[in-house]
């Protein structure tokens, strides 16, 4: 009906849209461009550099000098594909562990008398508000060879030689599960809390065993929360840097750590960009799925 443009609406959409477009989407373009460039010991540390004075010819020279050399390197050097593979393995296993640990907690919270639930939710959220770095740091003191865990185990006579945990993959698993646990528990709790528990009683009443009731009633109804929680853990864990860097050892390969090393230690911007592009391509499917779920959930909330 209305033919005149609603400028208020246009402005409302345009401001956040343009911000995100220029500062979130467009930078990926510069990552792709960088991944096609070559490293140089100069400032900025890459070639070719676009010279605006040369105009359209300059642009063409720029494009003609792009190549896929960095991507070839990624396939040739086994460090990279082993990093991807190892990240995938660590992220997958940590997600499963987080789910296994998070589910009983969320289930316990959902079954707690309602006057306690808000407090429990706050207790789950509280660590999330405290610094990630500090929480990872805390585990160094616990896991290291002369650390608190080994001291305690030796004190109680369970072991007589200290266990080597820090700087191994085990420490990385512990770190990821610990850091991402709230991200798993909260969406799980949100779905479990909504389940009408008379459904369980109905299933039991109809002759279902306790165990089977859990599998045929609780798990299917909690599925949206399970999926959301897994996405929230898996995707960031894939690119995790701090945990493998501080808790893992030199043999712990994770793609975030490799990227960081290429960038800050080797100052090889083009290769690290290529690493980022491949990582993004691996994650694009789960990210899109996650986005679809979020939008669906938002719509359901509104109804």
């Amino acid at each position: 009906m209305k033919n005149n443009v609603n400028w208020g609406r246009v402005a409302l959409i345009a401001i956040p849209f343009l911000w995100l477009f220029f500062l979130f989407l467009l930078p990926f373009g510069s990552v792709i461009k960088m991944s096609l460039s070559d490293m140089a010991t100069a400032r900025p540390p890459y070639t070719p550099v676009f010279n605006s004075e040369e105009g359209i010819i300059g642009l063409w020279t720029l494009i003609s000098e792009f190549d896929l050399e960095n991507y070839l390197l990624l396939t040739e050097d086994e460090l990279y594909w082993r990093s991807y593979f190892s990240s995938l393995k660590i992220a997958t296993l940590s997600t499963i562990f987080t789910l296994l640990i998070g589910f009983p907690i969320a289930y316990g919270m959902a079954k707690t008398p309602s006057q306690w639930r808000a407090t429990l939710v706050m207790l789950i959220i509280l660590p999330f508000w405290t610094s990630f770095l500090i929480r990872v740091y805390a585990w160094i003191g616990i896991l290291k060879q002369e650390g608190l865990l080994n001291n305690a185990l030796i004190y109680f006579g369970i072991i007589d030689q200290p266990l080597v945990i820090l700087n191994t993959d085990i420490a990385v698993y512990i770190g990821i599960v610990y850091s991402y646990l709230p991200f798993m528990v909260l969406p799980l709790y949100a779905t479990l809390e909504k389940i009408d528990y008379s459904l369980l009683e109905a299933a039991l009443d109809l002759g279902c065993s306790q165990f089977k009731t859990f599998w045929v009633i609780v798990v299917p109804l909690a599925l949206p929360g399970i999926i959301a929680g897994c996405f929230l853990v898996f995707i960031p864990a894939m690119g995790e840097f701090v945990i493998p860097d501080l808790l893992g050892g030199s043999s712990t390969l994770m793609i975030g750590k490799t990227l960081w090393g290429e960038f800050f230690n080797n100052r090889d911007w083009p290769v690290s960009s290529a690493v980022a592009v491949i990582l993004l391509m691996l994650l694009i499917v789960p990210i899109v799925l996650f986005q679809k779920m979020q939008e669906k959930e938002l719509k359901e909330q509104g109804q």
Partner: peptide
């Protein structure tokens, strides 16, 4: 562009920080 917009809202929530950081740096340099 609504789908794109929603994508740009939800993607940063799970985007590995190394990617976000690197891409912003390259933009600032560019």
């Amino acid at each position: 562009g609504r789908t794109l917009f929603a994508g740009m809202i939800y993607a940063p929530l799970v985007m590995p920080e190394v990617i976000t950081g690197l891409s912003l740096l390259l933009l600032f340099v560019a």
